[in-house]
Nucleic acid binder design. Structure first.
Length: 155
DNA sequence: GCCAACGTTGGC
DNA sequence: GCCAACGTTGGC
C-alpha cells in the first residue's frame, strides 16, 4: 500500500450516495464533464483509494472510502441523447469523456464534515477546502489522507 | 492568442 | 438566493 495514490470524489447524495454504492457494490463514475476532473480520473491506477464526499447537502463532508478497480472506460452517457450528460460533440470514433470504475470499501462510522475538516487542516494543506475549488475529483496528498483516515477511525 | 460574456459549482 | 471562483465559448 505504499505507492497508493489518494483521491477525493464528490457526489450529491440525492443523486448518488455512499449508501447507493454500498448497495450496488461497484459503480462507473460517469457524467464528469470537466476536463481537469477527467484528467485526474485518467491518472488513477487500479488500487488507488478514494474518499467519497457528499456535496451540496447539509452538512457536506467525507462519508466513505472507495477503491479504483478499472480505468480508461468510455463514459456511455456521452452518447445517450436521453442522458443529462449527452455530449453532441463527442464522436464514437474519438470519445471525449471516459471514466473509472469504483468499488465500495466502507462507510466511515463517523461523518467528517467540511467544517471539521477545515478546523483540522490549514487551508494551504488541503486542496479540498481551498477557496473557490470547484473540482469534483481531486488528488489528496498522502499525509493528508492518512490524517483524515486517522481522524475518521478514532471515533 | 486575447478577453468579455456567460455558465457552473457548491458553500453559506 | 447570493456570489466567488473557476471553466468554456466565440468574436476579433
Amino acid at each position: 500500500m505504499t505507492n497508493v495514490q489518494w483521491w477525493l470524489m464528490k457526489s450529491e447524495p440525492n443523486v448518488y450516495s455512499i449508501d447507493d454504492l454500498r448497495n450496488e457494490g461497484t459503480t462507473l463514475w460517469d457524467g464528469i464533464r470537466n476536463y481537469q476532473a477527467r484528467n485526474f480520473m485518467r491518472e488513477m491506477q487500479i488500487g488507488d483509494q478514494v474518499f467519497f464526499y457528499h456535496s451540496n447537502c447539509k452538512p457536506p463532508g467525507i462519508t466513505g472510502l472507495m477503491e479504483v478497480i478499472e480505468t480508461n472506460l468510455i463514459d456511455p452517457t456521452q452518447f445517450d441523447n436521453k442522458s443529462n450528460y449527452f455530449d453532441q460533440k463527442s464522436k464514437k470514433e474519438n470519445p471525449r469523456w471516459d471514466c473509472a470504475k469504483l468499488k465500495y470499501v466502507r462507510k466511515f462510522s463517523k461523518f467528517l464534515s467540511l467544517k471539521e475538516i477545515s478546523q483540522i487542516f490549514d487551508e494551504s494543506e488541503l486542496i479540498l477546502i481551498r477557496k473557490g475549488n470547484r473540482l469534483s475529483i481531486m488528488p489528496i496528498m498522502s499525509n493528508i489522507a492518512l490524517q483524515l483516515l486517522k481522524t475518521l477511525d478514532n471515533s
